[in-house]
Amino acid sequence: MLELRLVQGSLLKKVLEAVKDLVNDANFDCSATGFSLQAMDSSHVALVALLLRSEGFEHYRCDRNISMGMNLGNMAKMLKCAGNDDIITLKADDGSDVVTFMFESPTQDKIADFEMKLMDIDSEHLGIPEAEYHAIVRMPSSEFARICKDLSSIGDTVVISVTKEGVKFSTRGDIGTANIVCRQNTTVDKPEEATVIEMNEPVSLTFALRYFNSFTKATPLSNTVTLSLSSELPVVVEYKIAEMGYIRFYLAPKIED
C-alpha cells in the first residue's frame, strides 16, 4: 500500500513540467527515504535525478519499496487537471497496475480522482559517485534560463568557463559569437539574487545548449540554480525543491575525439 499526500501539490505539477520533455517513460521509486526518480533522456546524454523526501509529505505511507513505471507525458496531462492550490495524494495498492492521483481543493469542496495505468519499464539505473567539483556556481535560476535562451539563438553549444574572474558562457554560430560573463556578486538585497562562485581550479567544458534549455523548465521550482563543474565530468545542474529535496540534471560534456 502506497499513500503520499502532498499539501503543496503544485510542486508535483512543476516537477512533471520540468522533466516530461526530457524523458518519456520512467520508474518512480518509493521507499522510506522518499519518492524518487532517475532516468536518462532517449539519447543517453543527460540524466535526471529527482528526490522528494518523505518528511516533506503531510502523510507518507510506503509499506514496502515499490517502483512504478509511468509515461511522464500522460502523468503531466493528469496533473495539469489539478489546481495550483490543490492537495495531491498518490495512491497505489500492492501489485496493482494503476496509480490514483487524488486532487482536493483547499476548501475541500471539490475532490477528483484520476487513475492512470502503470507500465513495465526496463530502465538502466546508474550509480552516481560523490565527486569533488573544480567549481560550483550558484546563481538566480531566471538569469541562467535567460542566458541559455539567449545563447541558443546564436549557437548550438556553450562553453562554460570558470576562472577567478567569474563564470563565462560562450557560443558561436553562423551569424557570429556571444560571450556572457557573470561575476561573483554577493552584495545584493536578497540572497537568492546573488551569484556565488566557489572555485578550486579553473575549468572549461563544452555542452549542447538544447539540453540546458530543457533543464531550465525546472526554473519555477527554485529561485536559484547550482552548476557543479569538473573537467571531463558531467555538469550537475541542481534546482533545490524547498523543504523537500531536489531535481538534478546531469549532462555529459562534449569531448575531444
Binding site: H44, A46, H125, L126, A208, L233, A252, K254
Partner: peptide
C-alpha cells in the same frame, strides 16, 4: 573537434 559523450561513460550501472 569534439564529439558528444554519453552519460554512461562517467557513471556505472548500479
Amino acid at each position: 573537434l569534439k564529439s558528444q559523450a554519453r552519460i554512461a561513460r562517467f557513471f556505472r550501472s548500479s
